[in-house]
Every structure is written in C-alpha cells, then in structure tokens.
Design a protein around this nucleic acid. Structure first.
Lengths: 177, 177
DNA sequence: TCAGCATGCTTCGAATTCGAAGCACTTCGA
DNA sequence: TCGAAGTGCTTCGAATTCGAAGCATGCTGA
C-alpha cells in the first residue's frame, strides 16, 4: 500500500491481449490435459518433460534445466520425475560434471508413450487453437510471443532469491511516505 | 494403438506459436502470482475472481459463471469462494431466479484489496509482458488471441459430459440390451 | 588447505486442486 | 400431478503442488 500515485491504466488493446492470453492458455491447457490423460495417462507436466527430453540430442537433461524449462518448482519436479521413473518412462542417473547433479534420460518406453500421444495432441492443437487462424496470424503470433518469451527469460527473477536463513523480510527504506 | 497414419506434423511457426504461448503464460502467471501474494495475499484465481466481480455492473455473478469464466473446477471454486468469503472480500447470497443457485458479490473490502493490488499487477504486466512490444504487436496479439478465444469458447467440451450414475443404465454395447 | 557459503536435489508439511458422489431444487414428460 | 432426469452447488477423498528445511557436494577466499 501507500505506493505512489496510481499508474496510468492499460488501454483496451493491452488489457485485451493480456486477458485473451490467459484465457486462451487456460482453455487450451485444460483440453490438452484431458486428451493426454486418456490417451496416455500423462499429466501436462509429464508430457512437457518427456517432450523436452525427447527433443535433446541424447535424450537427457539435468533436473534444474527441466524445472526451469517447464516453469515448475524443484520439489514438484522431483515428485513428477519420481512418478515417471516408476512408470519406466525415464531414468535417473548421476551427472557427469557435478556429483550433486542428477541427469534424467528418456527411455524407449518413454519415447513410445510420447509417440503414441503426439498425434492426438496435435489434433487438439489444430482443432482448438490453429483452426481459426490464417497462416499470417500464426506467423505473427509466433513472432510476437517469441519476443516476449525471450524478454521474460532474460529478466532475472526480481531479487535473485538468495536462500535466506530466516526472517528479516523487512522492506528496506521503510515506508517513508 | 493401431491409430490411423500419423497426421501431418506441425510446421515451425505453428509449433513456435504453441510453445511460446505456453511458456509465456506460465512465466507470466508465475511472476504475477508472486506479486499478488505479497501485495495482497491473493492467489491468482482469487484475483481473477475479484477482478471479474469488480467488472460487472452489480458486482455479482453466479458460481457457475465464475467457474467457467476463470476455467476452474466447480469444487475448486467452492473452495476458493469459501476462502474469499472468510476473508470478507466477497459475500454469498441466494440467487434470485433459481433457488439452487448462489450469487457471489464483491464487498467493499474486496474492492479495496483489488484496488491496492492492481497498480503492482499492472507494473508486472508492463515490465514483463508489454515492455518489449510495439503498439502494433500488442494490437495484433490482442486481435489474434481474441479470435482464438472466441473459437475455443464456441466449441462445446467434446462430449457434453453427462453425469453418469454409478454403473447404472448407460450400458453402451455389451450386455444384452 | 580449509572454513564457510553456494548449489543441486530431496524430504516434509500444509495448502490447493480435481472428479465423483451427494443433496436440494427445477424441469420435462406421461 | 407426479416421478424421473437435469442442474447448481457442496462435500469428500486422493493426488498434486509449493516453499522451507535438510543433506551432500562444489566453490571461494584468507
């Protein structure tokens, strides 16, 4: 509270872009989630993880890379990786350079599941997402969203979360109104 | 298995649009979530709910409308509305036309919280999302995403989920009917 | 060299989330 | 008019999710 004066509000196009973005991604995700669920018994995160691994040359990646890639908490990733490992879709191994690290690798079974789920996934994308768009719309969307993505990725999480021991949340400079 | 032949894969622009969309919305959501958390102790859904209510003429809406609006499960909404009610930010009331219905209304306190959180919310949007985009990019984004949104909203959830009893009638093929 | 902090991952506990089932009321059809 | 089916919301149980704390290993500076 007691921030500076109210900032200039957003104009209709800016708000429209924001709301539509959130709404579209929510709806898309929701539908895709169902498809993945009954096509291969995968959650969306699990699918994303497999897809990422499948896209790398050697089919493996570090835990942290994966977590950052799919925007997921570390602990959440540990949990999901545990499930995928139990299902035999990936394998955990030690990391070459760093003894603390864990390397996750997609298995053949994992690739199979991925392959069996992909067609349906693409169908959903086409029907729900791509269908009403013209070629140029898609190009434009890809271009603009990529710019935003790169921008977001380049911005360090405000306050590079030092692992603080305990309290001391005190905002600096107090609230000198 | 034994599906039909693999469908034509997506081209780079289509994939790019899709991946960037998911990534951007995830990152944005993640950051916004933090901002809302320490600015007003709201989760993203709670913020969305308050925002929606605040946008209607009389500040109220039905449970189902809200759930559909923010793409959330009914039970989840009941839970969140419970929290918001307990916090005094909204009020539950009977629905005028339908005795089964519940009407949710934002309170003054709710509007206050919304107002206190909004500036920071907008700041985040600007810095993270709008900053790298030109006016025309934003217009284009808004236009295209709105088209997609409308398209998605117009498509009925494939198979209008009938509420199946517990293994009752329903017998589709199989036992002698 | 080594103490001390940083980093990578997991464990833990608490909160959220969802679908299925349940309850109350409404609507439809005989 | 009455009963069955449909709708709106809540309850319930199970699964997921996250941050904080813990552990083990890497790194840096005196």
């Amino acid at each position: 509270m007691t921030e500076d004066a109210s900032p200039p509000p957003l104009d209709p196009a800016q708000l429209g872009a924001y709301f539509a973005l959130i709404e579209v991604s929510s709806l898309l995700r929701h539908t895709v989630e169902q498809q993945l669920r009954d096509a291969g018994d995968l959650s969306y995160v699990q699918f994303q993880l497999l897809a990422r691994l499948g896209d790398t040359a050697d089919g493996s990646q570090r835990m942290t890379e994966l977590a950052d890639g799919v925007v997921y908490s570390r602990s959440g990733l540990t949990y999901q990786v545990g499930l995928l490992e139990k299902a035999g879709l990936i394998a955990r191994g030690p990391s070459a350079e760093d003894d603390r690290g864990v390397t996750v690798t997609i298995t053949e079974a994992g690739r199979d599941v991925l392959a069996s789920v992909f067609p349906g996934h693409i169908d959903v994308l086409r029907q729900l997402f791509l269908e009403p768009l013209a070629r140029e719309d898609i190009d434009s969307l890809a271009r603009v969203l990529t710019v935003v993505r790169d921008h977001m990725r380049s911005i360090p999480p405000r306050s590079a979360k030092p692992r603080r021991k305990s309290a001391a949340r005190q905002s600096p400079a107090g609230d000198g109104t």
